[in-house]
Design a binder for these strands. Structure first.
Lengths: 234, 234
DNA sequence: TCGGGGACTTGATCGAGATCAATTTTTTCT
DNA sequence: AGAAAAAATTGATCTCGATCAAGTCCCCGA
């Protein structure tokens, strides 16, 4: 494993404040793996053996029930996923698959639980992480229950714009079918939602989107810091 | 405060393992309050001053966005709510209101954070609680995205039946409008969903529901331990 | 016990979203 | 570059859920 990968890891909020010994315990039995796109990393129902960290690439968390499937979140570097399952030692509730070629670091679940038990600083960091994740899901549930499809799309676009520092043009980093599922709609309806937003000066060309009039979208969804994590205050 | 209320509190998983001194710190500045039905306890957007514990009654967690409102969870005794906001010291993402007359214990947020910082056992207990809550919300998100309205109702009925230890008849402990919102539908559609389930031998009379043929409902939703918390294995 | 008002139900209509089918565009592979 | 495969779009239709409007039931208070 490259030492700058370890540095990346060390800088995550989750690993701040733990001792060097604890960090070594976590990483010594860890291993780094490269995966091509479309590889399933974990399956819902399995027992967690590793805490995964996306160092590079993109990972999609999804779930299935009968014939239906839905995307729950997209994990971007650098962050961990399935921490809750690892720490509570319960089966996964989500499956994970790479969307593009990715580098994934895998920390043995047993080590994570060991350091968790021994180092109060790690336990406290995990509280911070879980608290944040919990609030993320609550926001997403509100997004789903309180907004229409077109509104969810508009909110997502404004969020991406925020991340891109207010850029006029943004690019969807994955297939539109994935975005559709993430937003809780079919690909067909995503197309129509884009068509609806044309009236708000949103123009598309493949994965690239130009937001000509952010204020119009803003008025449509009225983003709220109680739903949209990216929106703080004004 | 009655001492048996303290006992109730002490028995919660969240407070296991912390020192008597820590427990005293938490409870000495706490106070107990009785509220009639339909009282708003907290509002989304406010800063958390207390960790709330429902000792008796029923509390509804809900959220608003523009004109729309949705019920997110129902909190039953004995359990805490809004722990995540208290521990991360961030604004509430949900509002809370009593559904019936309730007794609520309020622990000062500052004390909670103090004991959290000082007692590793408390920090670890909070990890367990947050991990569990996180998984609850993920399940609910999957429930919403992967099931139809009638299926969500059927799953809810089967869950209540499980809680009631397989009883043929169950009683909705709150108004049907609340259940409708919790399940993500309108009161009108809940009525129709019940009408649909009549074909599966579900009969209603006010808030009392008789589930004549659980196997039929089972076949309809195919409950999954990946969505329905009450369903473990077979 | 008798209103009165809210909760619930039912019917009719409307709109959003899903599905099916066909076509166009884009990507990928040789 | 060209062919094949996959993704995206578009149109038509259908289903589910929302809304509007009565009407009924039930609970609560005077």
């Amino acid at each position: 494993m490259r030492s700058d990968d370890l540095d990346l890891l060390r800088e995550l909020p989750l690993f701040q404040g733990i001792s060097d010994a604890g960090f070594r315990e976590l990483t010594q039995a860890a291993f780094l793996q490269r995966f091509p796109a479309q590889v399933t990393l974990i399956n819902e129902g399995e027992h967690p053996d590793f805490l995964h960290v996306v160092l590079e690439g993109l990972v999609e968390m999804f779930a299935r029930d009968r014939q239906r499937e839905t995307v729950l979140t997209i994990v971007q570097p650098v962050s961990t996923f399935i921490l809750a399952a690892v720490i509570t030692d319960e089966i996964y509730l989500k499956s994970a698959r790479t969307l593009v070629a990715s580098r994934i670091l895998m920390l043995p679940a047993a080590s994570v639980r060991k350091v968790f038990a021994e180092e109060p600083a790690f336990a406290r960091a995990i509280v911070g992480e879980l608290g944040f994740r919990y609030r993320e899901v609550v926001r997403e549930l509100k997004n789903q229950k309180l907004r229409s499809g077109a509104e969810r799309l508009a909110a997502w676009l404004l969020g991406q714009r925020e991340i891109a520092d207010g850029a006029r043009e943004i690019t969807i980093p994955f297939e539109k079918r994935v975005l559709a599922s993430l937003l809780g709609m079919t690909p067909e309806n995503l197309s129509r939602a884009f068509a609806t937003l044309a009236a708000y000066d949103v123009t598309t060309s493949g994965r690239r989107i130009v937001i000509g009039d952010p204020a119009a979208l803003w008025k449509l969804v009225q983003p709220s810091q109680f739903i949209d994590e990216w929106k703080n205050g004004e």
